[in-house]
């Protein structure tokens, strides 16, 4: 078998060097090579959003990025959202609004919602629903997720 590729990245603010096979997705590299299992696989074809991470300042589905494409890139995963022991306001809002049931889609929703509020601090309900349409949730019917994002937006603007 040919050699693995040496990839240098910054993950959640830390320099991380990893060896990955070119056929491995960024999702596999994060989970199986780096051990960051908070990013989830739901479909492996970009349709469920459970593997959403921030990649060079944009959210992407990490199943549709190769691990080797991460060379020189900055990546934020769910593990990098909280600041130390302090939950991000979106994480807090998901808890307080009961915006999760099984929780498997939650990391993807939180990473995606964080990116939304960073570029649009006061989104309408429609804008929230549009932005999050690449993230599937089968438990909640989205009602409490949308309310959590609205709640987080208010609290982040007050802060």
């Amino acid at each position: 078998m040919p050699a693995k590729t040496y990839v240098q990245t910054i993950i959640n603010g830390e320099h991380v060097d990893l060896l990955c096979e070119p056929r491995q997705s960024l999702l596999e590299a994060l989970r199986d090579v780096v051990g960051l299992t908070g990013t989830k696989e739901g479909c492996n074809d970009g349709n469920c959003g459970a593997c959403t991470v921030e990649f060079d300042g944009r959210i992407v589905t990490s199943c549709l990025v190769l691990g080797v494409e991460a060379e020189g890139k900055e990546i934020t995963t769910i593990e990098g959202v909280a600041q130390g022991s302090e939950l991000h306001p979106i994480q807090q809002a998901f808890l307080e609004n009961a915006a999760l049931q099984c929780g498997i889609c939650t990391p993807g929703f939180i990473v995606a919602s964080k990116a939304l509020l960073e570029q649009n601090p006061d989104p309408t309900e429609h804008e929230i629903r549009f932005w999050l349409a690449n993230n599937l949730c089968r438990c909640t019917g989205y009602d409490k997720i949308v309310r959590a994002v609205q709640d987080a937006a208010v609290k982040m603007q007050e802060a």
């Binding site: 970009g46 944009r58 959210i59 992407v60 589905t61 549709l64 549009f130 349409a133 690449n134 993230n135």
Partner: peptide, 9 residues
């Protein structure tokens, strides 16, 4: 095309 994440790529 796709959703927000797909449009990022």
């Amino acid at each position: 095309i796709g959703g927000t994440q797909i449009q990022g790529r």
